[in-house]
Amino acid sequence: MALNTPQITPTKKITVRAIGEELPRGDYQRCPQCDMLFSLPEINSHQSAYCPRCQAKIRDGRDWSLTRLAAMAFTMLLLMPFAWGEPLLHIWLLGIRIDANVMQGIWQMTKQGDAITGSMVFFCVIGAPLILVTSIAYLWFGNRLGMNLRPVLLMLERLKEWVMLDIYLVGIGVASIKVQDYAHIQAGVGLFSFVALVILTTVTLSHLNVEELWERFYPQRPATRRDEKLRVCLGCHFTGYPDQRGRCPRCHIPLRLRRRHSLQKCWAALLASIVLLLPANLLPISIIYLNGGRQEDTILSGIMSLASSNIAVAGIVFIASILVPFTKVIVMFTLLLSIHFKCQQGLRTRILLLRMVTWIGRWSMLDLFVISLTMSLINRDQILAFTMGPAAFYFGAAVILTILAVEWLDSRLLWDAHESGNARFDD
Rank of each mutant, 00 (worst) to 15 (best):
C51W: 15
L130Q: 10
S411Y: 05
A392I: 03
F326I: 09
L93M: 04
L336C: 11
E228I: 11
D381M: 02
L255E: 09
R221S: 13
D60C: 09
M356F: 11
S119C: 06
I116R: 07
L208S: 12
L306D: 00
V324C: 13
S309W: 15
R412Y: 00
R216A: 13
Q220C: 11
A268I: 04
S176L: 05
W107G: 14
Q33V: 11
A196H: 12
L200W: 13
E157V: 14
V317I: 15
I19V: 10
T11L: 14
Y241D: 12
R221W: 14
L404A: 09
I383M: 07
I287W: 04
G173Y: 01
H418M: 09
A18P: 08
S411P: 08
L373G: 02
I19A: 07
A272P: 02
P151A: 07
G95N: 05
V329P: 08
Q295P: 05
F194K: 04
L230H: 10
T5Q: 05
I185G: 02
E211P: 14
N281V: 09
A2I: 04
S308G: 14
D35W: 02
Q180G: 09
I351H: 14
Q180R: 06
I167P: 06
N101W: 03
K13D: 09
I8A: 09
R380F: 03
S420P: 11
G292M: 15
I339W: 10
T349Y: 13
S372I: 04
L139K: 03
M76P: 05
P41E: 07
G173D: 01
D427A: 04
S48M: 15
Q244D: 12
L230Y: 12
D27F: 08
Q7H: 08
D381T: 01
N143E: 15
M365W: 02
D427H: 13
P87I: 08
T349I: 15
A49E: 04
M1N: 00
E212L: 15
I136G: 03
S45D: 05
Y182A: 07
L368I: 10
A18Q: 09
D99K: 10
L377W: 11
T110I: 04
K328E: 00
R226Q: 13
I319C: 13
G118H: 04
N44F: 07
M388K: 04
W140P: 06
L156K: 06
G389M: 01
L413V: 10
R53I: 07
L93S: 01
R25Y: 07
C343V: 12
L337W: 14
I339G: 10
F333T: 12
V406P: 02
L414V: 10
L88T: 02
T15M: 09
L154G: 02
I360Q: 04
N209P: 12
T239M: 08
T358Y: 13
V189W: 09
V324W: 15
G315W: 15
V329H: 08
H207D: 08
V406K: 12
P242F: 12
P129M: 08
D99T: 08
C34H: 00
R245Q: 12
L40R: 12
H252R: 09
I14Y: 10
A307M: 15
L89M: 06
F141A: 09
R362D: 01
Q344W: 13
I299V: 09
R412F: 00
A320M: 15
R226F: 14
R97H: 06
K342W: 11
F217D: 05
Q295C: 10
R97V: 02
I360E: 01
M36V: 06
V317H: 00
L404S: 10
S308N: 12
P390N: 00
F123C: 01
R158V: 15
I316H: 02
E215P: 13
M36T: 08
K160A: 11
Q55G: 10
L255H: 08
S305M: 11
C34Y: 00
D27A: 08
S338N: 14
D426T: 08
D114T: 05
L69A: 11
I339V: 08
I378K: 00
G95I: 03
T327F: 09
L159Q: 03
M155N: 15
E215T: 13
I14T: 11
T110D: 15
A268D: 06
G346Y: 15
Q220N: 14
Q47L: 04
I14D: 10
G95C: 04
Y218I: 05
M155Q: 14
A128H: 01
H90A: 10
L306H: 00
A137P: 05
P242C: 14
L88W: 02
S65W: 04
S364V: 00
T239Q: 09
P279N: 13
D99S: 12
N148S: 04
V331A: 15
G146Y: 04
G146N: 05
R62I: 04
S308P: 13
I199E: 06
T110Q: 15
D297A: 08
I274P: 05
A175G: 05
Q382W: 13
L276H: 09
A73Q: 03
D426G: 09
S273F: 00
L145Y: 09
P32V: 10
I106N: 03
M1A: 00
I43T: 06
S48A: 11
W92G: 02
E161K: 02
F141P: 06
R68C: 02
G315R: 15
M155V: 04
I383G: 01
T67G: 08
A70R: 07
V121E: 14
S411H: 08
V399M: 06
R424L: 11
L130P: 12
Q244N: 14
R380T: 01
I98F: 02
D27G: 06
N291K: 13
T204L: 09
I167F: 03
P6R: 07
Q344L: 12
V203I: 14
L271M: 12
S376Y: 02
M120P: 02
M365T: 03
S411E: 11
V16I: 05
M365G: 03
P219Y: 11
I14C: 11
T387C: 09
N379S: 02
A2C: 09
E296Q: 13
I319M: 14
Q33T: 10
T67F: 13
D114P: 02
G118C: 08
H418E: 14
S286I: 03
L290R: 01
S338T: 10
D416I: 11
S376D: 10
L156F: 15
T202Q: 13
A196T: 15
E42Q: 06
H46Q: 06
R25E: 10
I383F: 11
L3K: 11
G346L: 15
G118R: 03
L337R: 13
L409Y: 08
L159D: 03
Y394G: 05
L300K: 02
A175P: 01
T201I: 11
V179M: 02
V179L: 01
L373P: 02
I288S: 01
N422F: 10
W359A: 10
S305Y: 05
P41W: 03
I199R: 01
I299Q: 04
S65L: 03
F238P: 00
L277K: 10
F74W: 04
S420V: 12
P10L: 07
S420T: 09
P81Y: 05
P6N: 09
A183H: 08
G293Y: 09
I43V: 05
Q112H: 08
I378A: 01
V324G: 10
L282S: 11
Q108R: 07
P279E: 15
G240Y: 11
I285N: 01
W64Y: 05
R150P: 01
N4M: 08
R350V: 08
R348S: 13
I287P: 00
S309D: 13
F369G: 04
G26N: 04
Q29M: 06
P129S: 06
T239N: 11
W214R: 03
T15H: 06
G171H: 02
D427L: 15
A398G: 10
P41S: 05
A417N: 10
L69C: 11
D227I: 15
A183I: 02
F122A: 04
P254T: 12
Q7S: 12
L255P: 04
I319D: 14
T5P: 07
I14M: 06
T67W: 12
Q112I: 07
L197K: 03
G85N: 07
T9F: 06
V331Y: 10
T402G: 01
A423W: 06
L156W: 13
D35S: 05
Y241P: 10
G235H: 07
M109G: 06
S372W: 06
L283H: 06
E86L: 03
D166F: 15
F333P: 01
G173R: 01
G171E: 01
V198N: 14
